[in-house]
Computed example of a mutant assay.
Amino acid sequence: MKGGDDHFLVAFVLLALASTFVSASDPSPLQDFCVATNGDSGIDGVFVNGMFCKDPSLATPEDFFLSGFNIGGDTLNNVGTVVKLANDEKIPGLNTLGISISRIDYSALGGQNPPHIHSRATEILVVLEGRLRVGFVTSSPDNRLFTKVLKAGDVFVFPVGLIHFQENIGNNRAVALAALNSQNPGRIDISNAVLGSDPPIDPDVLAKAFRLDKNTVHQMQLRSKEPIV
């Protein structure tokens, strides 16, 4: 192969890799903002990133505002936690800006944000109150656990697409804020997705995967259907 062809091949590979990296996050906006609107046609604006956008001249400060993040949520449920997410649905001005934030409240002694993934976002978490045990697991084949106990003022990062969790190990409630680099990061709860799919995954498949007997898997599938109350 000639030298010029070598250079072309290297450039092509680098371009392909760059394209892969770019596609892993929200696209960069080409305007100052694109405030989402509930319009169902192009009459209210153009369709960008899954939403219609209003005329920029009609945008107001309220489009970029949300109150109430100082108010904790009700943690009286099966997992002892509640997540309040401020995404593009709650703050229309977030549309195309590639960021969102959530407040997470944990009940004392065991309030848990169960193992889950965000398919479109890396998450950075800062503890405001309490003590949390947090962690994430790397991809196969290593499946390495990175875990840490956090106190108020500590910060921890969960890389995009990896299973992660948080649990309150203190005697009092805990509160954290989490920022995510997507306006709509997505969330898949591992237990609900695997055990609570509709229709259910064949118990034979899960029994082999989890090395459990079929009846145990069936009971776990039934339990997963119980509402979080």
Score class of each variant (00 low, 15 high):
residue 66 L to E: 13
residue 98 G to N: 03
residue 141 P to L: 05
residue 151 K to S: 14
residue 181 N to V: 12
residue 72 G to A: 14
residue 70 N to Y: 07
residue 85 L to V: 13
residue 166 Q to A: 13
residue 124 I to H: 07
residue 167 E to V: 12
residue 160 V to H: 08
residue 171 N to M: 14
residue 71 I to W: 00
residue 179 A to Q: 05
residue 84 K to Q: 14
residue 101 I to K: 03
residue 156 F to T: 01
residue 96 T to V: 12
residue 68 G to I: 11
residue 118 H to V: 08
residue 177 L to H: 06
residue 63 D to Q: 04
residue 74 D to S: 04
residue 73 G to R: 06
residue 145 L to C: 02
residue 123 E to Q: 09
residue 79 V to S: 08
residue 92 P to S: 02
residue 133 R to G: 05
residue 145 L to D: 06
residue 162 L to T: 15
residue 123 E to Y: 02
residue 58 L to D: 11
residue 108 A to E: 11
residue 84 K to F: 05
residue 144 R to T: 15
residue 138 T to C: 01
residue 110 G to N: 09
residue 134 V to C: 10
residue 132 L to Q: 01
residue 99 I to E: 02
residue 136 F to Q: 06
residue 105 D to F: 06
residue 120 R to N: 10
residue 114 P to I: 07
residue 133 R to L: 10
residue 77 N to D: 09
residue 73 G to N: 07
residue 136 F to I: 02
residue 162 L to Q: 12
residue 131 R to V: 01
residue 109 L to E: 11
residue 78 N to L: 13
residue 92 P to W: 07
residue 122 T to E: 07
residue 74 D to Y: 03
residue 148 K to S: 08
residue 179 A to S: 14
residue 127 V to D: 05
residue 175 V to D: 00
residue 163 I to G: 02
residue 62 E to A: 15
residue 114 P to Q: 04
residue 103 R to L: 12
residue 75 T to S: 13
residue 132 L to D: 02
residue 124 I to Y: 10
residue 141 P to M: 11
residue 163 I to A: 13
residue 90 K to I: 15
residue 158 F to Y: 09
residue 70 N to Q: 12
residue 125 L to T: 12
residue 93 G to N: 06
residue 174 A to K: 00
residue 56 P to R: 09
residue 100 S to L: 03
residue 122 T to G: 08
residue 132 L to T: 04
residue 127 V to R: 04
residue 127 V to K: 05
residue 119 S to I: 11
residue 115 P to R: 09
residue 177 L to W: 00
residue 106 Y to T: 07
residue 92 P to Y: 11
residue 99 I to S: 06
residue 73 G to F: 07
residue 139 S to R: 11
residue 115 P to E: 04
residue 58 L to M: 14
residue 65 F to H: 12
residue 57 S to P: 04
residue 136 F to D: 01
residue 161 G to S: 15
residue 157 V to A: 13
residue 91 I to Y: 03
residue 89 E to F: 10
residue 111 G to R: 03
residue 169 I to V: 15
residue 136 F to W: 04
residue 162 L to P: 06
residue 77 N to V: 09
residue 135 G to K: 03
residue 127 V to T: 02
residue 164 H to Q: 12
residue 81 T to Q: 07
residue 59 A to W: 02
residue 132 L to A: 04
residue 112 Q to E: 15
residue 141 P to V: 08
residue 158 F to A: 04
residue 107 S to I: 02
